[in-house]
Amino acid sequence: MPESPAAPSVPTPTELSVEDAKLVILARGARGRVGAVEGAAVRDQDGRTYAAASVSLPSLAITALQLAVASAAAAGASRLEAAVVVTEASTLDTAGHAAVRDLATDAPIHLAAPDGTILGTVVE
């Protein structure tokens, strides 16, 4: 069985722009509304935002970041400017990271704790 790729490392926290801070609020709200393990939000090239929570059903499991990216793509987004994941994990999941990179090779992906504290930002 092939090994899964290593999770992207999360560097030291950075100060967020006002627009990225709004993504944290949206991601926290998506997570809190349904009591999900994680919440995520993304902003597309037009400034539109998409928020989602992780889904874990017997027939479907999708990370919050994958679902937020899928919602953006389904709405016609061709590029992402930024993403946020709110989670108790200390690393960014590889599936969510890959989904963001499908629409943006350089958009920052901020990892935040459930209280909104920024843990770090992945830019690669």
Rank of each mutant, 00 (worst) to 15 (best):
M1T: 09
E3F: 12
P5Y: 01
A6F: 08
A6S: 12
S9N: 04
S9R: 15
P11A: 00
T12Y: 11
L16M: 09
L16T: 06
D20S: 14
D20H: 14
A21T: 12
K22I: 05
K22T: 09
I25P: 01
L26R: 02
L26K: 03
R28D: 06
A30F: 05
A30T: 01
G32I: 08
R33V: 02
V34T: 15
A36D: 07
V37W: 14
G39D: 01
V42I: 09
R43Q: 03
D44K: 11
T49S: 06
Y50C: 05
V55A: 06
L57C: 04
L57K: 07
L60I: 01
A64W: 06
A64N: 02
Q66A: 08
L67H: 06
L67Q: 14
L67E: 09
L67M: 07
A70T: 11
A70P: 08
A72S: 11
A73C: 06
A73S: 14
A73D: 11
L80R: 03
E81Y: 05
E81P: 00
E81I: 09
A83M: 03
E88P: 07
S90M: 09
S90T: 13
T91G: 08
L92F: 07
A98M: 07
A99V: 10
R101K: 05
D102H: 12
L103N: 06
A104R: 11
T105E: 11
D106L: 06
A107K: 03
P108T: 03
P108D: 02
P108G: 05
I109G: 04
A112Q: 05
D115M: 09
T117H: 10
I118H: 04
G120I: 03
V122D: 00
E124L: 12
